[in-house]
Design a protein around this nucleic acid. Structure first.
Lengths: 340, 340
DNA sequence: AGACCCGGGACATAAAACGTCCATCACGGA
DNA sequence: TCCGTGATGGACGTTTTATGTCCCGGGTCT
């Protein structure tokens, strides 16, 4: 597989370039849904005319369709892109990155998509697609799946579709309400995922910043207790990873805590825990839900995050050593490898 | 290994041609030791100039060297050829088949898709795609296109899409109603193709098994006469090829005729005519529409059929000698070559 | 109704591919 | 030593293809 591409690179370097070009056109159209020639040209940094040439060609091949409203990918085209996935990875040199990270942190699988989530909205979408595919791969019938919030997780939810293997699964938020905008809260995302896959969901309506008393009262509540028990016995966790300070700001933690986070060198955040460079937990959010000790029993922990700026944070969480699968993008992967 | 090439072919249809061209240049140089441009050109059946273009390219890639005494292969080039050995076998299997059949039956173009229609539904779909592509390639504006029935033709219709070059063309059934299930009748297929491509269609509603009287009456009918005239002046015929006995059964021909078909060694069926092993017509369906003599004026005759079991039948029709283009699959192609 | 974006036709022009011819060089045999 | 042969590579006009540019008619959203 790899050899054949290496050979082709030697004998047909020009065709490999064309392949990349056509692939990226198709891929852009795929993630854009319906898109016009001019928009696409500028987003791919091509002149309109040469894009048009390629598009006409791809249309002849039946890989995309166009009507007055714009161009969209055809079913065969969509299938082709899927089949091409491994080829593209090798051709773009992503397989190397995946394997290096797997080895460096002892992970079961690493998936790297091309691009940089920080700079391209398309990469973010692709990250969502890849995250959804990873979840689909590891999920089994009757699983309880704990999810967190964040824009990346929202993107994954977007890309899930009904599938027999996920029908009847339970989606639960990993932890209580994490004061973000509603459509990126874990609760929202769990319910979207359940609806999209034909699964069921339970929510945790718990306010932020709990005091000790309120906390004790809450976990006595039978309704809440039931959900929390479900969360703690989940078989799969899929979560985003954030920069510690960014998350702290977003959650409006008080100034004291922020200072203490800084003093402790908090770098990354995931499912309510804050990690320093060495992967040690330096702080945790005061709310109910999944605890670190539950994670050890969890069979599959999937982390999804991308963007050059998050590379170091991802490396911190990986170093903590409870992840099994990582889905990230090229830019972040390169950063991660700088921190081994 | 094989899939990767198939995938690439979908995105870069001329990949194989170029790869083959460059490979054979290098290979020729390898076996020749040192050779000059003109010698090489004539032995590869290329014009000198185009060979020169490739040679200059290969030289830039460092795969061959040249000095005043001629060209010879470089060490990396030799290594590359060695590494390519397995690829070449797989990759050129089909191309070789295509060319052998073209030469054996004097066809303009042969397209072979991988697989066996008899055993794989994917191959059948692929055959449909390839058939549709072939039709798209040869069609011109304002053409009348005569089509036949059958599941393969239905598959082609499925794979047609609206295209400017086919807009406004006429689709007509090659011959009157061939008592098959409705969705595989020529009439149905002609109308689907017209709808899919944005063309127009005329149908021939003629019952099977016409008596001589009824026949005479029918062809007097101005409506029918108009369509029949259109059919007979078509520029393109695209048709399936069937096994004679299978078709006879499907059309419920009477026992007498069946016996006579068997006695005459009928092997294949196409557009209502039955052919024996040598390609002679041994029987024809009693219905209106395209006659063999009309076929001689037809500019493009495209036959589409696949499956190991049909190989012999396809060979019979090809031997009759009125086909220009054949679209088939690998299994059938191999069978065909056994009957040259 | 009007602004906007879409695909696709049209056409001039730039670029690449190709056919053709020739200058020059190395080599071997007379 | 000279000359014929076959080699590469330069040159150049021609043809074909790719590209830049402009515009039209038709949907769509506001």
């Amino acid at each position: 597989m790899r050899e054949i591409l290496d050979i082709q690179k030697k004998l047909l370097p020009d065709l490999m370039d064309i392949m990349k070009k056509r692939y990226s056109i198709l891929h852009h159209i795929l993630v854009s849904g319906v898109v016009g020639r001019r928009t696409l040209a500028s987003s791919l940094d091509m002149t309109e005319r040469v894009l048009r040439g390629e598009v006409e060609f791809l249309k002849e091949l039946g890989l995309l369709e166009s009507d007055a409203s714009g161009m969209k990918i055809s079913e065969t085209g969509r299938q082709l892109l899927e089949d091409m996935q491994p080829i593209v990875k090798i051709a773009f040199g992503l397989t190397d990155l995946e394997e290096s990270i797997e080895k460096a942190f002892g992970l079961k699988q690493v998936i790297v998509v091309p691009g940089d989530t920080d700079t391209s909205v398309f990469t973010k979408k692709e990250l969502g697609r890849a995250g959804a595919a990873a979840l689909r791969k590891y999920v089994a019938k009757g699983d309880i799946i704990a999810v967190t919030g964040g824009s990346t997780m929202a993107q994954i939810a977007n890309n899930l579709a009904i599938s027999s293997s996920m029908k009847g699964n339970w989606f639960v938020p990993a932890r209580g309400g994490l004061g973000e905008s509603v459509d990126m809260q874990a609760n929202t995302i769990a319910s979207i995922m359940a609806k999209k896959t034909g699964g069921k969901y339970r929510l945790l309506h718990v306010p932020d910043h709990l005091g000790e008393e309120a906390y004790q009262t809450l976990i006595q509540d039978p309704q809440i207790k039931e959900v929390v028990d479900a969360v703690r016995s989940c078989r799969i966790v899929i979560h985003g990873i954030g920069d510690a300070m960014v998350m702290a700001r977003r959650r409006k933690v008080d100034a004291d805590t922020t200072r203490s986070l800084q003093a402790d060198g908090a770098l990354a955040e995931a499912f309510g825990y804050y990690f320093d460079r060495q992967g040690n937990v330096v702080h945790k959010m005061p709310t109910v839900g999944l605890r670190l000790e539950d994670l050890q029993r969890t069979e599959v922990v999937i982390g999804v995050a991308g963007g050059k700026s998050k590379g170091e944070a991802i490396a911190s969480v990986l170093r903590h050593g409870q992840e099994h699968v990582l889905v990230t993008d090229e830019a972040a992967a390169i950063e991660i490898m700088k921190h081994v």
